[in-house]
Simulated assay, not measured.
Amino acid sequence: MAYLAEQGAVAIGQTSWGPTGFCAVASPEVAAGLLTALQRKFAGSPLSFMVASARNQPAELIGG
């Protein structure tokens, strides 16, 4: 988590039922660069990383 902060990430946190951590970054390009940096820095560790984006739209109900 400290590494994320050093790289400029914001809204850094950890779920209460962790060990899942998360952060927010300014753009998809920044996220891609951070993902690459994390994969290099922690290669060989049991950690895994993924990029996700917010979906700023109402819920959709399917079926019925």
Rank of each mutant, 00 (worst) to 15 (best):
W17K: 11
A32L: 06
A9S: 13
L4Q: 04
S16E: 13
I62F: 07
G18K: 14
A52P: 01
L34V: 07
K41W: 02
V51A: 03
N56Q: 11
E60N: 04
V30H: 14
A52N: 04
G18F: 06
A11S: 13
E60T: 14
P28G: 15
G18D: 15
S53I: 13
N56M: 11
V10F: 15
S45N: 03
L4E: 03
P58S: 02
A59S: 09
P58F: 01
A26P: 01
Q7H: 06
V51G: 03
F22Y: 15
A5H: 07
P46H: 04
Q7D: 05
G13C: 06
G21Y: 15
A37I: 01
V51I: 15
V51T: 15
V51E: 07
A37T: 02
S16V: 10
I62D: 02
I62Y: 01
V10Q: 14
G8N: 12
Y3P: 02
G44D: 06
S45T: 14
S16R: 12
G8L: 14
V25R: 11
A37C: 00
V10G: 10
L4D: 04
A5W: 05
P19F: 04
L35E: 11
Q39E: 05
C23F: 05
A5N: 07
T15L: 14
C23A: 15
A31S: 09
F49C: 13
A52V: 13
P28S: 13
S53Y: 03
A24I: 05
K41D: 00
M50R: 12
E29G: 09
S27F: 05
L61A: 12
E29I: 05
S27C: 04
V10I: 14
M50E: 12
L47T: 00
P19K: 04
Q39F: 00
Q39S: 01
Q7V: 05
A43Y: 00
V30A: 14
G33S: 08
S27R: 07
P46V: 02
S45D: 03
G21E: 10
F49K: 05
S27Q: 05
P58W: 01
G8D: 11
A31H: 12
L61S: 10
L35D: 11
R40E: 01
A32V: 03
F42S: 00
G44R: 03
S27M: 06
